[in-house]
């Protein structure tokens, strides 16, 4: 593989990356086309209509699902980033760091169905009925490893010398954290919250097993597909989720870019 430093090797490597990325991005296109005209992609390009998007708001169950999704995403964004911050600090400060980190990262290694099933059985046995609470719990569990890793990477760039300086000026640990470290690692916390919200919006398998009578947009799409199959309104919903996810990524990148510029000009 060292032969990849040759021009030919390099070209084939970048071709591979290009082909793989194309295969990963291609599936984001069909829902957009089918949502614009149920007759198919060709018709969608000639006579696009937003009819199916408007139809979403006439479906009461669906409007409920939208609100459940939004509420869950806000809760998961706030809770996962807070717990992620605490977890990152725990990895830094507590003993047995490897075990602490392994426990936090555990949800990454448990298949979604198994996690959903175990949570469902657990809530059932402890008499907690399915609600926004149970949905938020499984989604926070799923988002926590990512939130923690993001905050950890940003924390690793923070120089502890600043904290020493704060202590020398008489700050206690809490003041030093709040006034010195928190502002410097806040991009990581915002990143963790954004990532957690995106993961929440896009979670199906775990949520579907603990939601009870509620629905999120994702689980609504999934259960409607299983009962009656795909329809233009489902494609419209999928398109909205894809666009929302992309928009959040772009917004976050733009914010990071501006912060960087502000920092450089300061």
């Amino acid at each position: 593989m060292a032969s990849w430093s040759s021009p030919l090797g390099r070209a084939s490597a970048w071709t591979l990356i290009g082909v793989v990325l194309a295969a990963l991005y291609l599936p984001m296109v069909p829902p957009l086309l089918f949502s614009l005209n149920d007759a198919g992609p060709v018709a969608a390009l000639h006579e696009p209509t937003l009819h199916w998007y408007a139809a979403i708001w006439k479906n009461g169950v669906l409007v409920g699902a939208v609100w459940t999704s939004v509420a869950a995403a806000v809760i998961v964004g706030l809770v996962a980033s807070t717990l992620g911050l605490l977890a990152a600090m725990a990895v830094r400060e507590l003993k047995m760091r490897r075990l602490v980190l392994l426990l936090i990262l555990m949800p990454l290694f448990i298949p979604g169905v198994s996690m959903g099933l175990s949570s469902a059985l657990f809530f059932r046995q402890s008499g907690i009925s399915p609600s926004l609470f149970t949905i938020s719990i499984v989604q926070v569990l799923w988002a926590l490893p990512f939130a923690t890793l993001i905050i950890l990477t940003v924390m690793a760039t923070f120089d502890p010398v600043y904290l020493e300086a704060a202590y020398m000026h008489g700050a206690n640990r809490w003041q030093a954290f709040r006034d010195v470290e928190l502002p410097l690692i806040s991009p990581g916390i915002i990143g963790a919250a954004t990532f957690a919200m995106i993961l929440s919006f896009n979670e199906t398998e775990r949520t579907a097993l603990v939601q009870g009578a509620l629905n999120t947009v994702q689980t609504y799409i999934w259960s409607t597909y299983k009962q009656i199959g795909l329809s233009p309104s489902l494609y419209a919903l999928m398109s909205l989720l894809i666009l929302l996810t992309l928009a959040m990524v772009v917004l976050f990148m733009a914010a990071a870019f501006w912060r960087e510029r502000l920092r450089k000009s300061a």
Binding site: Y25, P27, M28, L199, T204
Partner: peptide, 8 residues
Amino acid sequence: PFLVNHVI
């Protein structure tokens, strides 16, 4: 692409 739900 990982962020966009794989079910979709």
